[in-house]
Nucleic acid binder design. Structure first.
Length: 460
RNA sequence: UCCCCAGUAGCUCAGUCGGCAGAGCAGGUGGCUGUUAACCACCGUGUCCGCGGUUCGAGUCCGUGCUGGGGAGCCA
């Protein structure tokens, strides 16, 4: 008999008769002549209830099934006379793959997230983590669908890169040299002997390469891993995270902001439509206000707020802040939270930042002091998107590189894109894990990715 | 990296003023019941994070290191 996934059992309108399911035991309750066994196979949050009675030839072993044990169950799918579930399986045979011993760390009871992080290899078997990882998968699908529906080309930007000063943070150096015995030239490491003949790093962003593809294919996006060697110890940062970076030719900052807003709303709607059961868990046990928050984001028109106005609002708020704000200083987390959570109570897009606090590639505005940058701030998470209209004018771009102390020769290929048929274009980066935090209500970024990479932690 | 908090049974945590190490859950045994975070009775469980110090005596006080958490910076 062919195995049926448990999610499909719950779709049934009428019983298909006998079925075969395979999965892991969540819990067992015994009566005198029979047992209730709840089995989960990861296809959905819900367990299927198995009725095993003493007519089974291995009932004496079935009665010892513990949480975490693996089984294959054949039996009749029938309406359950009990409360709490519509269907149950009256087992005619139970094959036991393995009985999990007493040392199995997961219990029926709820565990703390901190403890579960120490057993990252087993936590996907819990309800909560199973649900996050299913939602994560569904949203990957939604992201590709969103762009595909709009005629974007999915491109792959390199993971290994030779550019080292994009201004996006500290880099992980990649080398094939023997670190115990580095070749030296005039006292310094001789990278001419390294694999690529020069220093190489893990990418911090696919943006520069995506720009090149946008200036050929029109609308493109990348969706891949990104690496930052920053010693960040917060609930919102990891050394390895996944980023979605659209890049659009013939697109100005206005279009860029509209696109970002549509994107976020589309993904939230997709999650509510396709992950309702899993989202219920988060709405019930993680964040009681989750559905209200999500509905608010979907229905609200995002506020568009120039940086200077944001500064004025913060200054005139009458609120006590730890840090002062004035033109030329970046908004602190407390200021961003005040704007999104208290003042507007909905997502806020802040744009036209001072050029002194933004990287070289952002387009200089006519005022000469600001750049066409935009950050999307959402309640609870803070910055979820950072983007800009790119500087398409060669001379200004070169001047900005000089101002920020960059070596133009290293970026000859990037500058070529402004030399030959340059056009206005824009793009942004959305942190995938921060999106999952927003949609699930999970507060710590380490809990929305199966194997988080943070300073001092690379187990599993 | 900086500031704050925590580390005690497999898990969650209590431990008063410095004086014999505790509870619930999980686990085991028996019972009961179409049960559903089942229920009832009984049973076992310790490097009190490591190192050093103060003290007659330290889980408790002091110093230090490690680990985890919250906040900040950097950002997505």
């Amino acid at each position: 008999m062919k195995r049926t996934k448990i999610i499909h059992l719950f779709d049934a309108k009428t019983s298909p008769g006998s079925v075969l399911i395979k999965g892991w035991v969540k819990t067992r309750r015994d009566s005198k002549t029979f047992s209730f066994i709840e089995v989960n196979d990861g296809s959905c949050l819900a367990n299927i209830q198995i009725i095993a009675d003493d007519s089974l030839d291995n009932y004496d072993v079935v009665k010892t099934l513990s949480t975490g044990s693996s089984v294959a169950v054949t039996g009749l799918l029938r309406e359950s006379p009990g409360q709490g579930q519509t269907w149950e399986i009256a087992a005619s045979a139970i094959h036991i793959y393995d009985i999990a011993p007493e040392a199995y760390p997961l219990q029926k009871k709820r565990h703390s997230d901190e403890f579960l992080r120490t057993i990252g290899h087993l936590r996907p078997r819990t309800n909560k983590y199973g649900a996050v990882f299913r939602i994560r998968s569904e949203l990957c699908h939604a992201i590709h669908k969103f762009f595909h529906d709009r005629g974007f080309t999915y491109i792959h930007t390199p993971i290994l890169t030779g550019s080292d000063c994009e201004g996006a943070g500290d880099l992980f150096r990649v080398t094939a040299l023997n670190l115990e015995n580095l070749p030296k030239k005039e006292g310094k490491t001789d990278y001419s002997l390294d694999f690529f003949g020069k220093p190489a790093n893990l990418t911090v962003s696919g943006q520069l390469e995506a720009e090149l593809l946008a200036l050929a294919l029109g609308d493109v996006y990348t969706f891949g891993p990104t690496f930052r060697a920053e010693n960040s110890n917060t609930a919102r940062h990891m050394a390895e995270f996944w980023m979605i970076e659209p890049e659009m030719a013939f697109c100005d900052l206005e279009d860029d902001m509209s696109h970002a807003e549509e994107f976020i709303k589309n993904l939230i709607v997709h999650a509510m439509d396709h992950c309702a059961r899993d989202l219920d868990l988060f709405a019930n046990f993680v964040d009681k206000n989750l559905m209200k928050t999500l509905e608010n984001i979907v229905s609200a028109e995002f506020v568009r707020l120039p940086y200077t106005d944001a500064v004025d609002i913060v200054k005139q708020s009458g609120h006590k802040f730890e840090f002062d704000i004035e033109f030329g200083k970046d908004l602190q987390t407390e200021h961003e939270r005040y704007l999104a959570e208290e003042h507007f109570k909905k997502p806020v897009v802040i744009y036209n930042y001072p050029k002194t606090i933004k990287p070289f590639y952002m387009r200089v505005n006519d005022d000469g002091s600001t750049v066409a940058a935009m950050d999307v701030l959402v309640p609870r998470i803070g910055e979820i998107i950072g983007g800009s209209q790119r500087e398409e004018r060669l001379s200004i771009l070169e001047r900005r590189m000089e101002e920020t102390g960059m070596n133009k020769e290293d970026y000859w290929w990037f500058l070529d894109s402004r030399r030959y048929g340059t056009v206005p274009h824009s793009g942004y980066g959305l942190g995938f894990e921060r999106l999952i935090m927003l949609i699930t209500g999970i507060a710590n970024i380490r809990d929305v990715i199966p194997f988080p990479r943070t300073p001092g932690n690379i187990e599993f």
